[in-house]
Computed example of a mutant assay.
Amino acid sequence: EEDMIWQDPVTPGNKDYDIESLKTEIKSCGLTIQELVETAWASASTFRGTDMRGGANGARIRLSPQNEWDVNKPDQLSNVLKKLEVIGSKFGASLADTIVLAGVVGVEMSCDLKVPFQPGRGDATEDQTDSESFDVLEPLACGFRNYLKTEFTVSPEEMMLDRAHLLNLTAAEMTVLVGGLRTIGISATGEGIWTKVGKLSNEWFKKLLDMDVKWETTGSNSYEGKSRSTGKVVRTASRTDLVFGSNSELRAIAEVYAQNDNNDKFVSDFISAWTKVMDADMF
């Protein structure tokens, strides 16, 4: 049967390998939780529910143009993929599976809970990839990673909402993913990192709703949070961070996750939303 390049063909991957041993190897490879999670997100979050293109299956993040996109941090990406490719090949796993499993390992390390994983992704070749047709998948903004390529007439938070729609995410899933990714340390600008990096918890939402902090604009997409009692700058944020406190619907969701007795719910919901994105193209 002939492959039609416009269908983004992917040769099916191997499902029969030792997942637990592969996870152990990934844990000891020297990559940080942030690097593991951010690479998996970069690979999977290109999925578009509108036309079913993109996603982690195929591992096209290692090919042009995706490995050159600024949002994917090319230097960091190259280092991560080199290590994961060597590790995955030892166990007979595709790089696509290894990337997603590395993200699973990162999330598990951040919360000490089991994260579901579905194997079977394949690795697409350059001959199976029309690189020019993938240019349109480049994220010009990714609120989940606090990335904005340049200023646009559309606000960063609206572009984040568009990305969430393409990923078929609900408002609650979008909210829990942004808060969780910030606690893991994912932010292209460094803004919105208010908690101990690498520990998945609802602390980010508590900081967001802290009434002792007064926010002031420092740029078109940047803010300083100053303590009302001391006047000192205690944190920085982007519009996509602060919309979860300013928009009434998103704030209501944030308030649920910020409750002292809802950390377990936050972590559970993050894992569910994370798995949904990772498996979005497994159809």
Rank of each mutant, 00 (worst) to 15 (best):
E1T: 10
D8E: 08
D8C: 11
P9F: 11
N14G: 10
K15R: 12
D16N: 13
Y17E: 05
I19W: 13
I19E: 02
E20T: 09
S21K: 13
L22Y: 09
T24V: 12
T24M: 03
C29H: 09
G30V: 06
G30I: 07
G30F: 03
G30Q: 04
L31P: 04
Q34M: 08
Q34T: 13
T39W: 11
T39S: 15
T39F: 14
A40C: 12
A42F: 15
A44H: 07
S45M: 03
G49C: 11
G49N: 04
M52G: 06
R53T: 14
G54I: 04
G58D: 12
I61K: 06
R62I: 03
S64V: 14
P65G: 03
E68Y: 13
E68M: 13
W69K: 09
W69M: 10
W69S: 01
D70C: 12
V71Y: 13
D75C: 05
Q76A: 10
V80N: 02
V86W: 04
G88R: 12
A93G: 11
A93K: 10
S94R: 10
L95G: 02
L95E: 03
D97Y: 12
T98F: 12
I99C: 14
L101R: 00
G103R: 03
G103M: 09
V104Q: 03
V104D: 00
V104E: 00
P116Q: 01
Q118A: 07
Q118P: 06
G122A: 05
G122I: 09
D123V: 10
A124K: 02
A124M: 08
D130S: 15
S131D: 13
S131L: 02
S133F: 04
L137P: 08
P139A: 04
P139S: 05
A141R: 05
A141Q: 11
R145G: 05
Y147Q: 02
K149D: 12
T150H: 04
E151T: 15
F152G: 04
S155F: 05
S155R: 15
M159W: 02
A164D: 03
H165Q: 13
L166H: 02
L167R: 02
N168T: 09
A172Q: 06
A172V: 05
A172R: 06
E173F: 03
E173H: 00
V176C: 04
V176P: 01
L177G: 00
T183H: 06
T183G: 08
A188W: 08
K196P: 13
K199Y: 12
L200I: 08
S201R: 04
S201E: 11
E203S: 10
K207Y: 08
L209C: 12
D210C: 14
D210W: 14
V213N: 02
W215E: 05
W215I: 05
E216C: 05
S222V: 08
R228S: 14
T230D: 01
T230V: 11
G231H: 08
K232V: 10
V234C: 05
T236E: 00
T236W: 01
A237I: 03
T240F: 04
T240D: 01
V243W: 09
G245P: 15
S246V: 06
N247Q: 12
R251A: 05
A252R: 07
A252W: 00
I253S: 13
Y257H: 02
Y257F: 15
A258N: 10
Q259C: 09
N260R: 02
N262E: 07
N263Q: 04
K265M: 08
V267Y: 04
V267I: 15
D269S: 14
D269L: 09
D269N: 10
V277G: 06
M282P: 06
M282D: 07
F283E: 09
